[in-house]
Simulated scan of single mutants.
Amino acid sequence: MTWLKDMFGVEKPIIAMCHLQALPGDPHYDRAGGMAKVVDLALHDLRHLQGGGVDAVMFSNEFSLPYLTRVRPETTAAMARVIGELHRDIRVPFGVNVLWDPIACIDLAAATGALFMREIISGVYASDFGLWNTNVGDTARHRAALAPALRMLYNIVPEAAVYLGNRSPVDIARTTVFNNGPDALCVSGLTAGAETDTQVLAQVKAAVPDTAVLCNTGCRIDNIERQLAVADGAVVGTTFKIDGRFANLVDPERVRAFMQRVRSVR
């Protein structure tokens, strides 16, 4: 897709997740380490992701478990502080993901200069976080008011949730594109790190050939060639971490090996 190439400078970009530790107000926040620890660990991961050659980074409050569908102000404020402190070290295009609140995501993007965001922006779901509703009309208008150039990545197969109604991902993709004009669609597995079904990915791409479709979870060095044969790019997090475990910090050797594989196939 043209905008992907223009923004990231490559075909089939790899957007690396920079997972922030639990933040003030989160159940697992490390009060002893405080925000200084959150910043230090985010900087550790950012440097190793960029050093390994990723095409972009996306900052998310991944360890704010269990997630809210409308975050509290302290979460957005804490994320803005982290990104602000890291700003001089960011050398690649960056985006934001405030789990799971698209309005807060736009607020954060406007405050930090993020170029793109990923969120659950449309649809209604039964989820581990309760009944999960959205208001895409409000979200689109909020972007128009605060950050009209912000690219919006719509996650249409959200993790830990199921669409309310008997609709396939292909049907959801078609109507999402028609009604909302997303910059990209993200297709996911069951949870962070869970492999995305390549068949579903291919079906969605065939249904909306003029819209960017990203593989959103579960990309690994042994499946990335297959996923990029279909997808226009990928969002990658867990596989970059020590031992490929979600809770760990980024392993620079895993990043380098993965990106070397990507460069050999794209």
Rank of each mutant, 00 (worst) to 15 (best):
M58G: 03
I242L: 12
R167T: 02
T176K: 08
N97Q: 06
V250M: 12
N248R: 11
V98N: 09
N179V: 10
T69C: 09
L228P: 01
V71R: 02
L20D: 13
G130K: 02
R266H: 02
M58D: 08
V124W: 06
N179D: 13
G123I: 12
R31V: 11
M79W: 05
L153F: 15
N97P: 08
M35H: 12
D101C: 09
L68G: 00
A78T: 06
F94E: 02
T75F: 00
M17D: 01
L150H: 11
A126Y: 13
R141T: 04
V177E: 05
Q21P: 08
V177T: 14
F246C: 05
K37A: 09
D222L: 10
A173H: 04
G193L: 05
I103D: 01
A207D: 04
P252T: 12
G33H: 13
T176F: 11
R70H: 09
E253C: 03
V204Q: 03
L131V: 11
D222M: 08
G181N: 14
V255I: 15
T112A: 02
A77C: 07
P252M: 14
A32Y: 15
P252S: 07
V57K: 05
T75K: 09
L65S: 12
L49V: 09
R226L: 12
D45Q: 10
D210Q: 14
